[in-house]
């Protein structure tokens, strides 16, 4: 059965026809062509598909597009202001917080949500928060450094 869903994605009103089983991440990637949100494990564990729904981070591979009818979504594409990266994106670049980059969109979206909840997270709190974001390249050290720097920048330096 087909359902029409409408939501706001990165500040823009969008709508489309989906099946009941269409995942939010499929809607973002395949209907809207916003391919910055990645599908890693597709089993709710790796966090590559992390986006914000109504301001909080969720795994878009584990939410149906129909469940997102009427919500506000922010994806990695919605962070930068023109050519100016979001402070968290800039911190990942400056601190070499990525290698292959596959997990990075989810890491950045998750990290921003952490800083929204806890503006000055300790290293321990950052590592605990990253429970739901897996990286197979970096060993996490530079990701944690990036988030510390990004949090500082988001607080205004």
């Amino acid at each position: 059965m087909s359902y029409t869903v409408s939501m706001t994605v990165n500040g823009k009103a969008v709508s489309g026809d989906v099946e009941g089983r269409t995942l939010l991440v499929q809607f973002l990637r395949e209907h809207l062509r916003l391919t910055g949100t990645h599908v890693g494990c597709d089993t709710s564990q790796c966090g590559a598909c992390c986006v914000h729904v109504n301001g909080t981070s969720i795994k878009s591979c584990t939410m149906l597009a129909v469940q997102a009818d009427g919500v506000e979504v922010t994806t990695i594409e919605g962070l930068a202001n023109g050519d100016e990266l979001h402070p968290m994106q800039a911190a990942f670049r400056e601190n070499h917080g990525l290698q292959c980059g596959f997990c990075t969109p989810g890491m950045v979206m998750s990290a921003i949500d952490l800083v929204q909840e806890n503006p000055e997270p300790s290293e321990k709190e950052i590592r605990e928060w990253l429970e739901g974001n897996l990286c197979r390249c970096t060993g996490y050290h530079n990701i944690v450094k990036s988030i510390e720097a990004g949090a500082k920048a988001m607080r205004g330096g």
Binding site: S44, G47, C50, T56, S57, I58, K59, T62, M63, S110, D113, L114, W129, E131, G132, N133
Partner: peptide, 9 residues
């Protein structure tokens, strides 16, 4: 329980 994103849903 789980991780932050799971706890949000």
């Amino acid at each position: 329980i789980g991780d932050a994103q799971v706890r949000h849903r």
